[in-house]
């Protein structure tokens, strides 16, 4: 039996008819078409389905679609400002060739986005902590971490200049 829910997806009010036993990851991909949400391990281990649920990073494979009723959901598709082509984080990841196959990319970005919002110049430890639950099987993480460190450094310098 399907139930209709209404929620905010990437700043737009949306409705969808979902099955009781449908996960949010599944509904976002196949009903809403936000294909940045990847279904990987399906048990919270790999982080590739990470989205923001009321601003917090969560694993959408462990949430029922029905739980999104009335809530604010953000996927990778919704993180950039209208005037941007991509966010500064995405620019840096691209410039650093941070990903190979790209399967983990959206999850990584969705785990890093709230960190950078709270703290624009995180330490290496904080960066690692933020992506501790995101698996990447191509790169060994180094080019991802170094890209974020570069961004953190630039943000720090920017802040000092504006003082």
């Amino acid at each position: 039996m399907k139930t209709q829910i209404a929620f905010t997806l990437n700043n737009e009010l949306r409705k969808m008819d979902v099955e009781t036993n449908q996960t949010l990851a599944d509904a976002l991909r196949y009903l809403m078409g936000t294909k940045s949400v990847k279904c990987g391990c399906e048990r919270g281990d790999c982080g590739s389905c990470t989205i923001l649920f009321n601003g917090k990073s969560v694993r959408s494979c462990l949430i029922l679609a029905l739980e999104a009723d009335g809530q604010e959901i953000t996927t990778l598709e919704g993180i950039k400002k209208p005037e941007e082509e991509m966010t500064p984080l995405q620019e840096k990841l691209l410039a650093n060739n941070s990903f190979q196959c790209g399967f983990c990319a959206s999850g990584m970005i969705m785990s890093l986005t709230p960190l950078l919002k709270k703290n624009p110049s995180p330490s290496e430890e904080e960066i690692k902590e933020a992506i501790a639950g995101n698996l990447c099987r191509c790169t060994g993480y180094e080019p991802i971490i170094s890209a974020v460190k570069e961004l953190a450094k630039e943000n720090r310098q920017q802040k000092e200049k504006s003082k």
Binding site: G44, F53, K56, S57, R59, L62, S111, E129, G133
Partner: peptide, 9 residues
């Protein structure tokens, strides 16, 4: 416990 994405829930 786990990772940030799990601890948030």
């Amino acid at each position: 416990v786990a990772s940030c994405g799990i601890r948030n829930r």
